[in-house]
């Protein structure tokens, strides 16, 4: 690829207890678009995200964020531009929803008034404005997930900041259908502002709806990469996922429709 993306991964190798988890990964995550990572269980999707977050040591390869090697970023500077939603969040202290979302503002030195405004807008974005005063620990799984989405949204909210990046590990887990649509809307909202989005998704139909680029991982290797229509083929699904699926076109929005 000629242009260098917000995230630039070149020839990444990483191992987890002597087992090669990532093998020669090359990937550009361009600004203003969404990239979805798909692949069967154990394909290395979460390992890839962990490598990007700096939680998995690279054996080889280069990892750049905005043209600067990832490990050279100061933690706070990076946190201002890059927000990460992990697969699992455990919070057992009685914070209110509003307080949880405002944790996303920790890296920033913006005034309290502005933070409050951002927190409310972020809650609005994930359809949780009515939960602001509730205790987080009392929410349902799907509501908690939306609040966590609002937290990472609040972390990279400032539109003036260039080169922002949003990383989501299975954000659709425990979301109902209406809120999966909300998730797609949220990704579009940030992509329009020029944010580079990288997300792991299990739901292939959701991936084809929200992603500009789909990356297929299999046993630590990047086996396919491209537009949803080019990647989501019956041949790929049988080769990588080992399923005999039907790929059709969603008459409503023209996106791919995978039926198994």
């Amino acid at each position: 690829m000629s242009t260098i993306g917000t995230l630039h991964l070149d020839n990444l190798h990483a191992a987890i207890s002597a087992e090669l988890a990532l093998d020669q990964i090359r990937l550009e995550v361009p600004a203003g678009s969404a990239t979805a990572i798909i692949g069967p269980n154990g394909a290395g999707k979460t390992s890839l995200l962990r490598a990007i977050c700096g939680e998995l040591d690279l054996q080889l390869g280069e990892l750049q964020f905005n043209g600067k090697a990832m490990h050279l970023w100061k933690p706070q500077q990076r946190a201002k531009l890059m927000a990460i939603l992990p697969q699992r969040s455990s919070l057992e202290f009685p914070f209110t929803v509003e307080e949880v979302v405002s944790l996303g503002r920790i890296p920033h030195d913006t005034p309290r008034q502005r933070n409050h405004q951002i927190v409310m807008e972020a809650l609005e974005l994930v359809d949780c404005a009515n939960l602001a005063g509730r205790l987080y620990v009392h929410l349902s799984g799907g509501e908690k997930q939306r609040v966590q989405l609002a937290r990472v949204a609040a972390q990279i909210w400032d539109e003036q900041a260039q080169d922002r990046c949003l990383i989501l590990d299975e954000p659709s887990a425990s979301l109902d259908l209406a809120h999966q649509a909300m998730l797609v809307g949220m990704m579009r909202f940030f992509a329009r502002q020029g944010v580079a989005i990288l997300t792991v998704l299990h739901d292939l139909n959701l991936a084809s709806k929200c992603a500009d680029q789909i990356v297929v991982l299999d046993r630590g290797r990047l086996v396919d990469c491209g537009e949803p229509k080019a990647v989501l083929t019956e041949e790929m699904l049988s080769r990588v996922f080992n399923i005999d699926a039907l790929v059709s076109v969603n008459a409503k929005d023209g996106s791919c429709l995978v039926i198994c």
């Binding site: 933690p75 706070q76 992990p86 969040s89 944790l103 890296p107």
Partner: peptide, 20 residues
């Protein structure tokens, strides 16, 4: 104070929020 708040989310999340 803020680092401890971030810690309540978990160590990884605290790291993502820029805490050393």
């Amino acid at each position: 104070r803020s680092a401890l708040n971030a810690f309540l989310l978990g160590e990884s999340d605290a790291r993502y929020l820029g805490i050393d």
